[in-house]
Every structure is written in structure tokens, then in C-alpha cells.
Design a protein around this nucleic acid. Structure first.
Length: 199
DNA sequence: AGTGCGATTGACT
DNA sequence: GTCAATCGCACTA
């Protein structure tokens, strides 16, 4: 069931908001010596050019430099000292913007994810950006990785129709809070956030 | 060199 | 529903 070929960079929309929507329904595949885990992306957020809520807002630093890579590269950072977060860089090289991957519907390697998370319930494995990273063992060592190449972590296609995509405000930020830059699969149980946000 | 703060989570009432 | 844990890193001096 796992896609065997990564998405072509050429097929990724350059625009950050378009990319965030495009990634809904695509697959995220993690390959380790221990095995393979994969899930369907069901929730994303765009952090666009000039976005006061984005990490690149004040220019390039040691932490955020991967956001400035050409679209389709991983930007991984640690939030609140405990949770790793996976982003996909967007726009052209030299422009700091990206898409936060917030939730997955687990498809493959369920036992591996359960082990990594310490919980069994399917719904809790990758619902939320920190949980997603823990389930797939994503950390800063993957920062800067090309997600359009087969390797330890990559983006794949999914034959299925994505379904009805909802759009709303982003979660957990304190600046630019009103912009509708969050995308999610409607009525999907693996999406994070309050129920009222996901109708 | 010191300070303040998160693109969250899990535990608890 | 509320709330504290926790630490890398950006920012100030």
C-alpha cells in the first residue's frame, strides 16, 4: 500500500498556501532499519511569506535555515522543549516559508508507531504535530532532508481522492491569529484540534 | 552570560 | 475544563 515513489518537486505548488492544501491526502513515509511506517496527511498549516507567526519572520538563523531551502525539504524544530515538529519548506530557495504537518492517519507500521508513542489507540498515534513526530521518530537529525527523494523520510502519492477539505484559522499561535491558513480533512477522526474547528 | 518564550502535550479537577 | 513541564534558541547587553 505504500507509495513506492516520492512526489516530484516539480509537482509541488510553489505557493505556501497552495502547498499546504496540496499535501492533504498525500502520504508521509518513514523508513528505518527497524521497518517502515506511513500515514496519510490529514491536517496542515501554512506559514507564508512575511507571516508574523512564522519562524522565518525575522530572517534566517541557525535553527530555521531549512525553511529557506527550495520547496520539499524538511524543517524540524523542537517546541516547548519536548515536542519535535515537522514542516515542509515551500516557495523558492532563499525564501523562508513552510507548511507544518499537524496530523496523520496511520496506514502502515502501526505497531512501530505504537511502540514509539507508548500508546495503543490508533486515533492518538499521530493526532497533533508532536505526536506525529514521535510516532515516526522524527527529530532534528532529519532537518534539511529532501522529502522528494526516497530515503529515511519522504512524501508519496495516494491514489485515493482526498475527500472534503476544510479550511480555518491556525492552532496555538499568538500572532496573525485570524488568517485561514489551516487545512484539514473534514470529519476525519485523526485531525487535531477542537471538534468545532473541524466541521 | 542572562533572560524569556513558545506552531504542545499529558496529567489532573 | 485548567495548568505546569521543559529546554533550545533568539534576543539583549
Amino acid at each position: 500500500m505504500t507509495a513506492d515513489r516520492p512526489l516530484a518537486r516539480q509537482d509541488l505548488p510553489i505557493d505556501t498556501t497552495c502547498l499546504a492544501r496540496y499535501l492533504i491526502g498525500k502520504k508521509l513515509v518513514r523508513t528505518l532499519p527497524e521497518g517502515v511506517a506511513a500515514g496519510r496527511i490529514v491536517e496542515t498549516e501554512a506559514y507564508v511569506i512575511g507571516d508574523a507567526a512564522g519562524h522565518a519572520f525575522r530572517g534566517m538563523t541557525a535553527r530555521n535555515r531549512s525553511l529557506f531551502l527550495e520547496r520539499g525539504h524538511a524543517y524540524v524544530y523542537v517546541a516547548y522543549g519536548r515536542s519535535d515538529m515537522l514542516n515542509v519548506s515551500s516557495e523558492s530557495a532563499g525564501i523562508g516559508a513552510g507548511v507544518l504537518i499537524r496530523a496523520l492517519e496511520p496506514l502502515e507500521g502501526i505497531a512501530f508507531m505504537q511502540r514509539n508513542r507508548g500508546v495503543d489507540r490508533l486515533r492518538d498515534l499521530a493526532r497533533g504535530p508532536g505526536r506525529l513526530a514521535a510516532a515516526l521518530r522524527i527529530d532534528r537529525s532529519l532537518d534539511g532532508l529532501d522529502l522528494c527523494r526516497a530515503g529515511p523520510l519522504w512524501l508519496g502519492d495516494d491514489e485515493r481522492e482526498p475527500g472534503d477539505i476544510g479550511r480555518g484559522i491556525r492552532i496555538g499561535i499568538s500572532r496573525d491569529t485570524d488568517r485561514p491558513l489551516r487545512f484539514y480533512l473534514r470529519n476525519n477522526p485523526f485531525v487535531s484540534g477542537r471538534k468545532s474547528l473541524n466541521a
